[in-house]
Design a protein around this nucleic acid. Structure first.
Lengths: 148, 148
DNA sequence: CTTGCCCCTGACGTCAACGTCAACGTTTAG
DNA sequence: CTAAACGTTGACGTTGACGTCAGGGGCAAG
């Protein structure tokens, strides 16, 4: 298959495919006139590369991982990288979850314009500091969901 | 508090704080000599900003959301942004989870160097296409975990 | 006073994964 | 044969959240 076919099937640009080749992530045969030729399997490989890029892996890291994918084995260094990236991804997911919950709290508050924002749910977060004034949810309660 | 104190307490650089101010995300008083002065609450605000940046929100988006944090209300447009970003974060988490599972499969395979890679777990993914040859886990099975 | 540490503005540098354009050769449908 | 559609290399542009440096001023202690 030619580069345009792979690009279309994998959902990326031809520029991306040439970039992958430049980075050593994707090999290609050439016709006598210099045009790139790929096997079917290239589509899946590109999808995997894209998945790793989307997950924040650097091209150099992917380059170290891909041989492991082909051979089904991993040297100790590659194994270390695998676990490092796994840990990094878990941390990134936790960060995303925290930000998502912050957004959820903002959505919940915005959805209830009354000063009493869903008391049963949020009372611990904005319990009045004194008896006279009721505080609205503030920065601290939104960012962490826990009152200082 | 001065900029160095806030930076230290919030775990960011002073350059970052000036950048936030430049982007309209963080206000500051000034002394007569022009030095920035922040209230205590700035620490929490910076942490929230950082949380949003880490989650992939653009500064322009955060700029639209922060007033909502202070007022506790949200205009319809802001509400739309809230939900969009919530959706985006969910998608990003799903992408991370998928990449994490791909790494897990690579780790599992690398951990069992024998050709029979944990049959009970992976048999559906690499069942021999015919009776003669046993295929090792390949690109397709690693990227998606499901045989084509 | 001066030493050392903090702060200011302004401006350029960075990094990565491509986008985009130029100038040109190749393949293919009619 | 010809025009459209596709391919090639090379090189510069983009984006965002800062890092970093230059050149200058502010501020408490000794």
């Amino acid at each position: 298959m030619r580069i345009g076919d792979i690009a279309h099937r994998a959902g990326v640009s031809t520029r991306a495919l040439r970039y992958y080749e430049e980075q050593g992530l994707l090999a290609s045969e050439r016709t006598v006139t210099g045009q790139r030729i790929y096997p079917e399997s290239a589509v899946e490989r590109v999808r995997l590369i894209q998945q790793f890029f989307t997950a924040g892996l650097a091209s150099r890291t992917i380059l170290q991982l891909l041989p492991c994918v082909e051979t089904g084995t991993a040297s100790p260094e590659v194994f270390t990288i695998l676990e490092q990236e796994r840990t990094r991804i878990n941390a990134a997911m936790a960060d995303l979850a925290a930000a998502g919950e912050a957004l959820d709290r903002m959505i919940a508050i915005a959805h209830h314009p009354s000063p009493e924002h869903c008391p049963a749910l949020r009372e611990p977060a904005w319990a009045p500091s004194d008896g006279s004034t009721r505080t609205r949810p503030t920065l601290a309660t939104i960012s962490t969901g826990v009152a200082p």
